[in-house]
Amino acid sequence: MGFTDRHLLGIEHLSPLAITEILDLADSYVALNRAPSKHADALRGLTQVNMFFENSTRTQASFELAGKRLGADVMNMSMQTSSIKKGETLIDTAMTLNAMRPDLLVVRHPHAGSVALLAQKVTCAVLNAGDGRHEHPTQALLDALTIRRRKGRLHRLSIAICGDIAHSRVARSNIMLLGKMENRVRLVGPPTLMPSGVADLGVEVYDDMREGLRDVDVVMMLRLQKERMDGGFIPSEREFFHRYGLDHEKLAHAKEDAIVMHPAPMNRGVEIDGDLADDINRSVIQEQVEMGVAVRMAAMDLLARNARAAAREGVMA
């Protein structure tokens, strides 16, 4: 089965075939995005609402651009400043919005599971743009697309995910996606930033970065999520950088052609050395941003197709 779901809430329930389908379509949108005229009409006439209960600049911009390039009417709602402050519950907000008949709802929320909760209450397609520490599926998909284009495949690769695993939804989605596609995943970081039971997820866990990076094809750095830390996970940023910050010296333990990724925004000098981040021979960070737009176009296009198919079936039934 390919991607036939009504919503895109996480990687957990996607099949390898569904992932491949999204990536294949995204590939074609990369080409479109590089053309002088960037317009398609897959979402023409549809309304896309971006609801962000948590600050975001780049993800929101990426979704907005993806929708606009496919011809959707896009509205951004910054929920931090709206009715949530007045005590309205998430479900009431969802119901109110649902009554305005959007077709695609892109949601980011600080609590795990909240996007799925909201999806139960609305009739349109819901895209999870990050829920707490749970999942961030489009980030994992854009990472996968970047890797596939750079490495020519998305299987039998050795990939190290490094840094603040505990607070990272990106790490969780990537662990699942890369595992489903049959790659070897290593997690590298201080034990205080490793979530419990993580060794049962089919990954190898390292607390020594040099060892963890040995002979890997891909080094995926994570942002140290200072805003999610209620104190005392690491002694200091400088000690963290010394032991777990990626620089050329530590990267030398990886394969010669290993690529460096980061979901951005970066803390330069905390988890990644500034020069390395800018090194066009190793870093694919800018490319990840580009793939992000294409992957989101593909995901929304497929969700719209699935909705149309469901509506047709409804008519026939």
């Binding site: 957990e12 795990a112 599971g113 829920d131 707490g132 520490r133 749970h134 999942e135 939804r169 969780r172 979530p195 419990s196 039971g197 993580v198 049962d200 997820l201």
Partner: peptide, 13 residues
């Protein structure tokens, strides 16, 4: 409670 399930769900444990 802490463990694999908590980690998969991204819930504080």
């Amino acid at each position: 409670t802490s463990g694999k399930f908590a980690t998969l769900r991204g819930l504080p444990a």
